[in-house]
Design a protein around this nucleic acid. Structure first.
Length: 632
RNA sequence: GGCUGCGUAGUUCAAUGGAUAGAAUAGGAGUUUCCUAAACUCUAGAUCUAGGUUCGAUUCCUAGCGCGGCUACCA
């Protein structure tokens, strides 16, 4: 059992003995003792004083004595400072952690019988993966593994957005400008090739939009506007020239006008026509769609393999987008939804703090929400999970809240188990990434760059000159991806983060390579000891120096840190822990020799510490999706 | 406008309402005849503003200022 959990239970027991009051576990606050005070863990007494009608000193002394008397093998001393009861834990207790030295699964919990689904990645098939996807992929993968480690049965899923207007844009541009180009003929990854045509489409669209926009700005009429747009037009035209209006409002109107002009272009008309043909099952359109998506999937597979993403189930929007309709029909009968005069179907969530939300268009086609309702149902039919985590950016907080609420109102059995791992945008120092401005950081490019830096740094240091080419390639991948993953996972997922291309590619300090380096040095020590035929059966020292104890205290926390990171869906907790462990171990390494320890007992002790630190670093980094090298 | 999130060292990030707000990096000063210096040691440096709640507030509440996101019959 984790020490802090045990201490809480012990505290509750002694309070019950002393005062006859049975407190809940949550009422006990335990923190690590500040370095300036004597002790290892501290019970904060302030919150208990009023209820127990005790003075800080009185309660502290009474609890300290009772704890020490009841658990003399664990609590070997205490001090009371103001309202803090500082407990000193016995060396024997810390040394006890070393019983796990040969357990390669240290940190893992047995199965708990619960099932969890984690959906992550969710790419569109019209362009390659970018930096934002990487944060999503790393988070999703890591959270899934964290839950596995705490005993859940976990299934990783991916929803591929493989249909819709955006896909047709790439297809249309390829038809118009592609001249039969293929990944083979251009020697290009399929996802990048298709992405190029998406960009080409946007460029061509921009060219077509410009003259239309000029006309609209000048107050002239243009062909191709639908009725709704035509109605809004005069107001917008007035707004953009209204000097009395706030600049933001003028910009807003300007953007709406631009959107209107884009939709009035012949190109967009062609795209809509293509989408229609796709939905009607037009053979030629479907064939093109299958071909181009095939290229994209081959490209995605390469990237996924490289970044370590994998999925147990893959859903395709093209296969699920009709599924939600049936539930909407049933919900309509139940009165959860209602139909407007034009035939569109809505749900009124105003009493739940939301707005009215459309769930079916007036022409009967499904929208984003419709298919997500259908997908949720299908997921449950496939896996019957207790909980379902959606790894989706925070710009969709509203959507996910509404999805859960609708599922609850439909009495779907899985509704309560829906959780949203809402993560913040990755931004550049110049602001948000914008595909229109070409500032999107491509995932493949970034991976290449990271491995390039790893290679340059490795060659510069020259420590692995005897490696074979394939060993070097593997090492560069381990280090480059380690640096990248650690960088994106070390920040609280909920917060948006800045990616600085210059500064982020760092291999020093709070980074993946720092931890990997610590691991490699331990392996080096272990190899050296093996060479010398170290005495494995000798007893280890039973007293602890401060540097040794500091490492053991951290090793004991591993399970608790995994549990916390999983419960919070927050891998950064584990990243911080692993870094702290590596740093603390480096202190021990610098201060005390292991191979050349002052005695056999000390050597055996430090060797055991080395082994367990190596296991925890390997397992901990593994939960972040990061490998550790035997040498670097 | 409505809803919602965030403001912490020069920079990037920490801190279940708890003790003197921690790291990393950049800056300054050091450490290698000794297990990998991608390391270690020392140094300097921060809570947006104004109120409130209480033994105690970076954390909770109110207002203001600043920066995001959402507010589509797009996904």
């Amino acid at each position: 059992m984790q020490l802090t959990v045990a201490l809480k239970q012990m505290a509750i027991a002694v309070i019950n003995d002393l005062y006859g009051v049975l407190l809940p576990e949550t009422s006990i606050t335990i923190t690590e003792t500040k370095p300036d005070f004597e002790g290892d863990y501290t019970i904060v007494l302030f919150g208990l004083l009023k209820q127990l009608r005790q003075s800080p000193d009185g309660l502290g002394m009474a609890m300290g004595q009772a704890l020490q008397a009841a658990h003399p093998d664990m609590v070997v001393g205490f001090t009371v400072v103001k309202g803090f009861l500082n407990l000193t834990i016995s060396d024997a207790y810390w040394l006890n952690t070393l019983q796990h030295t040969h357990n390669t699964q240290y940190g893992w919990q047995p199965a708990n019988g619960k099932k969890l689904m984690v959906e992550y990645s969710s790419p569109n098939t019209n362009k390659p993966l970018h930096l934002g996807h990487l944060r999503n992929n790393f988070l999703g993968w890591s959270v899934a593994e964290l839950y596995k480690a705490t005993g859940y049965e976990v299934v990783k899923t991916c929803i591929v957005n493989d249909r819709g207007v955006h896909i047709c844009k790439s297809m249309l541009a390829w038809q118009k400008f592609g001249q039969g180009a293929t990944p083979q003929s251009t020697n290009k990854k399929g996802d990048h090739l298709v992405g190029d045509y998406y960009v080409m489409f946007e460029q061509a669209l921009k060219a077509e939009t410009a003259p239309l926009l000029e006309k609209l700005r000048a107050g002239e009429a243009v062909a191709g506007l639908d009725a709704v747009a035509a109605e809004k037009l005069p107001l917008l035209q007035a707004k953009i020239h209204d000097a009395a209006l706030a600049p933001e409002k003028r910009d807003e109107a300007q953007a709406a006008l631009t959107e209107m002009a884009r939709n009035a272009t012949p190109l967009m008309a062609e795209v809509r026509q293509m989408l229609l043909k796709w939905e009607q099952g037009d053979a030629e359109t479907i064939a093109l769609w299958q071909t181009m998506n095939g290229w994209v999937y081959a490209g995605f597979d390469a990237t996924y393999q490289r970044i370590g993403s994998n999925f147990d189930l893959v859903y395709y929007e093209s296969e699920t987008y009709l599924l939600g309709k049936q539930r909407v029909e049933e919900g309509l009968a139940l009165g959860v939804f209602y139909k407007k005069a034009d035939g569109s179907v809505w749900i009124d969530l105003s009493t739940d703090g939301f707005d009215e939300k459309l769930v079916l268009r007036k022409d009967g086609t499904s929208v984003y929400m419709t298919q997500d309702i259908g997908l949720a149902e299908r997921k449950y039919a496939d896996f019957a999970m207790d909980e379902s985590i959606y790894v989706v950016g925070d710009e969709q907080n509203y959507h996910l809240s509404v999805l859960k609420l609708i599922c609850q109102k439909l009495n779907m059995p899985f509704a309560g188990g829906i959780k949203h791992l809402s993560y913040g945008m990755v931004e550049l120092p110049t602001g948000r990434m914008k595909s229109r401005e070409g500032t999107v950081v491509d995932a493949d490019d970034l991976c290449n760059e990271m491995e390039g830096v790893a290679a340059a740094k490795t060659l510069e240091l020259g420590k692995v000159n005897d490696f074979e080419p394939h060993e070097l390639a593997a090492l560069y991948a381990t280090l480059g991806m380690g640096a990248l993953k650690f960088y994106l996972l070390r920040v609280d997922p909920k917060k948006r983060m800045i990616f600085n291309p210059e500064e982020s590619i760092d291999f020093h300090g709070f980074t993946g390579p720092f931890v990997q380096y610590t691991y490699a040095r331990i392996q080096s020590v272990l190899r050296k000891m093996d060479d010398r035929g170290a005495n494995a059966t000798a007893a280890h020292s039973s007293s602890l120096l401060p540097a040794e104890k500091a490492v053991l205290v951290l090793l004991e926390q591993f399970e608790g840190q995994i549990a916390l990171a999983a419960a919070e869906m927050n891998p950064s907790i584990l990243a911080g822990y692993v870094f702290l462990l590596a740093k603390t171990f480096n202190g021990l390494y610098a201060e005390h020799s292991i191979v050349g320890a002052e005695s056999i007992e000390k050597q055996v002790l430090r060797l055991k510490i080395c082994r367990l630190v190596a296991t925890v670093l390997k397992n901990g980094m593994g939960l972040l999706g990061i490998g550790v090298p035997a040498r670097m």
